[in-house]
Design a protein around this nucleic acid. Structure first.
Lengths: 206, 206
DNA sequence: GTTTATATTGACCGAGCGTTCAATACAGCT
DNA sequence: AGCTGTATTGAACGCTCGGTCAATATAAAC
């Protein structure tokens, strides 16, 4: 039903999902108004009626992307865990989540690159990164509190930053490693190292 | 002296350095034959005489970039270190190297994204990533050999992959974090954690 | 049914792109 | 000096892009 009017909220949603599909297929930098219009079944003029400019659309897509992605969904099972176990479980969970939706993380990487040259994008990416890191701070603080001697010089924020960096690194790995051979090795090894860490901390704690 | 001839090797080098500058300034996806020509002080036709196509130029720039970047320059001081110390020193060294030359790592990230859609680029990035990882394998193997109980389930390749992922994650961090506030926190915390790791392994070894 | 505000369309514009190519300038050779 | 192959130039082509806009279609108000 082309030419039919629709409430603004619906149209914008429709355009954004089309933009997401187009960006995932051709890349963010090659994203085109016409591509989005075709993917949404609209005319280019209509897309530009709802988003006045290409950059505005790209920023709206970024915000939609950040809103839609769960910040950090901790598995329920962490309730009875030791602090190190809980943090390790979160890391495992996040690594798996990244490798489950490669298109999304690829797009976010593209936004980081765009953010190098566009301040509006950069600010939003940075804010989201901090929000993501802050979700790990309580877990990190618990780990530090459980073994204050080992982590005497480490702040919860610092530990959370290190953890997030590792997760991002794994995300890159899965992004590059399209057939997932190295990624599996990475995940397995990370799991073993985390398990070993848990065992050691349990021995130290007892 | 425009219009003067030059040996092919020199011209190609001149064009590549101009392409590097242009790509660092405007981004790889926005790299333009005319930009490169202007930066090199040549005409667009001349650039296309030496590199028949834009994609060919981009791939040549990638190979030039990978050749020019030292694979893994280990500091001499690792000679008398324990295995864990040596690996930690290498990690520290690489993190510092990444934050010293942000333009280069940004460009490499852009190549990873291009590689998602271009098989030639992807193959080269992957090969280089493996080469980079392999440089850490001996260090990782030494660490495992020194404490075979802890690392009973871990292969040298696996450990090296984990280490590289962490380094890449730190690279991303410094790429995003333009003013380097979080990056310093990250580096300090990583240093503390590595030092603690060294102390623990020394105690276990003695 | 008429009016009115607004959403939609697609032709169109100017700009910039990669690439082609005829013309030209250069350097080595005889 | 003349010749020859090659490097260089910049105009030109065809194309796609972001963005504009007059025309049209739609739905709600009256």
């Amino acid at each position: 039903m082309p030419g039919t009017k629709a409430p603004e909220a619906e149209r914008r949603e429709q355009i954004l999902t089309a933009a997401y599909a187009a960006a995932a297929e051709h890349g963010l930098e090659r994203l085109t108004i016409r591509q989005v219009a075709t993917a949404a079944g609209l005319s280019s003029g209509s897309v530009l009626f709802h988003y006045e400019t290409r950059v505005e659309l790209i920023i709206a897509l970024l915000e939609w992307l950040l809103e839609t992605s769960a910040v950090l969904a901790l598995p329920d099972s962490i309730a009875g865990m030791s602090p190190v176990e809980a943090l390790a479980a979160a890391v495992r969970h996040e690594i798996r989540r990244f490798s489950d939706d490669p298109a999304r993380i690829r797009l976010l990487f593209e936004y980081w690159i765009v953010g190098i040259r566009r301040a509006e994008v950069h600010a939003r990416m940075r804010r989201d990164l901090h929000r993501y890191r802050d979700a790990f701070v309580p877990l990190a603080a618990a780990v530090i509190a459980a073994d204050p001697v080992t982590f005497s010089e480490v702040s919860p924020q610092g530990l959370a930053t290190v953890v997030v960096s590792f997760i991002k690194g794994c995300g890159i790995q899965t992004m590059i490693d399209l057939d997932h051979t190295d990624s599996h090795e990475l995940r397995d090894t990370a799991n073993h190292l985390l398990s070993e860490l848990i065992r050691k901390s349990a021995r130290a704690g007892s």
